[in-house]
Simulated assay, not measured.
Amino acid sequence: MELVDVWFVLIAVLWTGYLCLEGFDFGVGMLLPAVARDEHDRQVALGTIGPVWDGNEVWLLVAGGATFAAFPEWYASLFSGFYLAFLLLLVALILRGIALEYRAKEPRWAPVLDRILTGSSLAAALLVGVALSNIVRGVPLDADHEFTGTLLTLLNPYALLGGVTLVLVFALHGAVFLALKTDGPVRERSAAVAASAGLLAVPAGGVFLVWTLLDGAPLWALAPVAVAALGLVLATVLVARGREGWSFTATTVAIVAVAVTLFGSLYPDVLPSTIDPAFSLNVVNAASTPYTLTIMTWVAGIFTPIVLGYQAWTFWVFRRRLTRADHGAPAELAGGAS
């Protein structure tokens, strides 16, 4: 395997990690009004992602940095063509961070910040789905690899369906995560929301993945598509039976399978051209020099295990369930199993 192929796989892995980890963060933010009835419930729900959400966002930053270093032509065409969409995504992520960090510091603004958190989480998930869908489907690139469309070009039916599908999958992923990480009323409501989200995510995901297959995906992509569909169905069934751990595993496997389908369908291109396939960017004409890729491979080989170990340790430290009693609720209001 050439280094360009290695780095394409590594970037796909970084995006997959981002979708799996930041996915439940977005889901928690989107579902906050549905699972929390008062301030104690909101503190319980947000406490599940408080120690990890900013670390989960690092996966997106590293994916962008790796794209810049390994495939500068891909980075240039992508970030210039998707400029307005990425600007909106950046604004959503900034507002989400402000809402998470400042609601405890300014209690008077907590209701407003909670609405901002919900809206920005939904918007960010939608924009990520639209961006990934356009990368896989292709965009109008000319012979100089320059984007010739507009923002409306990116809002095509396939991309919009991909965005809506990702929102629903993240809602299911986040609801299952909340049911896994909490106890009492928040856990009960999260399980109920997960069942409803699953009923919407399964058909939406099925249509999107079938469309991807019919749009020229390789035959082998049938396998991860089947795994993704089965994962979403099992997650919905398992969370209803109180098996939150297995349900969360199922949603994670489904997201990984979706990422494998999308990036596997994309390869060897990194940004197809809908004007002429000859204008497409691929792992060869978009890549950095072999010397650059060699240095990056050594750096990634040294530091990636360290980062993964630290993040795994963080999740282990904050592994227990949270209840209302953890956030100062009276004992008689804590609810749920002890």
Rank of each mutant, 00 (worst) to 15 (best):
A12F: 02
W313M: 14
T252Y: 03
V139E: 05
S280D: 05
A329L: 09
V260S: 03
P51N: 13
L60I: 04
G47K: 06
L78V: 05
F177L: 04
G81W: 02
V52M: 10
D326F: 04
L262G: 01
G65K: 14
A286H: 02
P51Q: 14
L161G: 03
V44D: 00
R320P: 00
F26W: 12
G335W: 00
V317E: 12
L14T: 05
A70C: 13
L333N: 02
G206C: 12
T148Q: 15
R243G: 08
L60F: 13
F82P: 04
D54I: 13
A312I: 14
G162E: 00
V225E: 00
F8W: 04
L31Q: 01
D215H: 14
L209A: 10
Y102T: 09
A329Y: 02
T182N: 08
I11G: 02
H327I: 01
T212I: 07
A143R: 15
F177Q: 02
L333T: 12
A229S: 11
G149E: 08
A85G: 09
A191I: 04
G138W: 07
D326W: 05
A228V: 08
T48Q: 07
E39H: 06
W298D: 07
T297D: 13
V62Y: 00
V35C: 07
T48E: 03
V307Q: 09
E57N: 14
V227M: 06
P72L: 06
D38G: 02
N285C: 05
F24W: 15
R319N: 13
T153F: 06
D326Q: 08
P272L: 13
A254V: 02
F248A: 07
E188F: 05
V253E: 10
L141Q: 10
A34P: 00
A287F: 00
L61Y: 08
L113E: 04
L154F: 03
L126N: 00
L209T: 06
T251I: 09
V167H: 01
V202P: 00
S247D: 09
V283D: 03
P203F: 15
M30Y: 02
I302V: 15
D142T: 14
Y310I: 15
L132G: 04
A70N: 05
L132T: 07
L168C: 02
S121Q: 11
L88S: 08
A191Y: 05
G264M: 08
A337F: 14
G23C: 11
H40A: 12
V139C: 11
A300F: 14
A76F: 11
S280H: 10
I94S: 09
S273D: 06
R96K: 15
S121Y: 07
F68M: 15
A85E: 09
R103E: 01
A226V: 08
G27C: 07
F279Q: 03
L232F: 13
E101M: 12
R321V: 06
L266R: 08
I295L: 15
P157H: 12
Q43D: 11
P33A: 07
A92W: 04
P330N: 04
L93W: 10
A325M: 05
P107T: 05
